[in-house]
């Protein structure tokens, strides 16, 4: 991409879009119905998350719009349902559909935020480890091994539990979203670091890197402007799966009461708050957000699988 930088911007955009529609990537997408379906569903989720305040009939964060008398109304298609609450209401009397819309927003925000942090840390560490090599490389990769052998969820549960116990529940709830992004983000950096390092090791031997070094470009410039763009496809492949994992991790933590508070629920905390009510027959408070969560994660995993098949350098010829 850097070679084209002398071309006028329009021209470049034109050739890039033309390139895209002729690519192996676009062709595989066109013939794969599952991938198209997954992509559509994913876009729908993003749309729901972005425009939640506009789509939602009620504002679940506004106590004035909530009436406790409306609690535990079943979905509108069942006998005791109410027309104004499509998916019924939860235990606090909030409209479930609105709460799910806002919850999707929170879950996706945490998932994507955490993956950005992972990617940032992992890419920097991976580039440095792969390009500089030597003792620094073996130290960083040993760290990655140790970090990976503790599972993310275990680290997150223990860290957040201790944090909550030391600083109290109230302060914790205010910081919950920030803490979740931070913990899930930091715990998973080795995934990116290993992937990036592996491709850097392969790229580093190529002639264009030698050329850049001979021109006298600085090391950071070679790493970020020359090598990094060539490691993007594996990064893209793991990112989709990582977002799915981050969303599951967030939901699990929220379920344990270590994540988002019930006043600002993510999908996980919604499921958690509905759990005790399934024994009294109010299945929808738990099951509907559960289905929404599983579908989101499933779609992301399928997209990740598809991307891996398409972008896998071994299979990809072009």
């Amino acid at each position: 991409m850097t070679q084209n930088s002398t071309l006028p911007v329009n021209n470049q955009a034109h050739t890039m879009s033309e390139k895209f529609f002729k690519s192996h990537f676009w062709h595989s997408f066109k013939i794969d119905i599952v991938a198209q379906l997954c992509f559509l569903v994913f876009i729908a989720y993003v749309f729901m998350a972005l425009f939640a305040p506009a789509i939602a009939p009620f504002d679940p964060y506004d106590p004035a719009s909530i009436d406790i008398m409306n609690s535990e109304i079943p979905p509108s298609w069942s006998e005791e349902g109410d027309e104004s609450f499509w998916l019924g209401t939860d235990n606090q009397g909030r409209d479930l559909w609105s709460t799910i819309l806002y919850g999707t927003r929170v879950s996706l925000l945490i998932g994507i935020g955490a993956v950005f942090l992972q990617a940032f840390l992992g890419i920097c560490i991976g580039l440095v480890a792969g390009y500089i090599g030597g003792r620094l490389d073996s130290f960083l990769m040993r760290m990655a091994d140790v970090q990976l052998s503790f599972s993310t969820l275990m680290v997150a549960i223990i860290f957040l539990a201790v944090f909550q116990a030391s600083f109290g529940t109230e302060l914790y709830q205010e910081l919950a979203m920030f803490m979740l992004i931070l913990v899930i983000g930091i715990a998973e950096w080795p995934q990116y670091a290993r992937t990036v390092r592996a491709s850097v090791l392969a790229e580093k031997e190529k002639e264009y890197v030698d050329a850049a070094r001979v021109i006298g470009l600085s090391t950071p410039r070679i790493m970020f402007r020359h090598i990094l763009p060539n490691t993007l496809s594996p990064i893209l492949v793991i990112s989709t799966v990582q977002v799915a994992n981050a969303i599951i991790a967030e939901a699990s933590l929220s379920f344990l009461g270590l994540g988002m508070p019930a006043s600002e629920p993510s999908l996980g905390s919604l499921i958690s708050s509905g759990f005790e009510y399934i024994f009294s027959g109010a299945w929808w408070i738990t099951m509907i957000p559960g289905i929404v969560l599983v579908l989101l994660v499933l779609v992301m995993n399928l997209l990740g699988d598809w991307l891996r098949d398409v972008l896998n350098p071994k299979l990809y010829k072009g």
Partner: peptide
Amino acid sequence: STIGISVPVFLTAIGLIYIFAI
């Protein structure tokens, strides 16, 4: 197995409780 990976543990548990226990 792809579906299995996508379902969080606690949801599997809740589903099993709902179907087989309740």
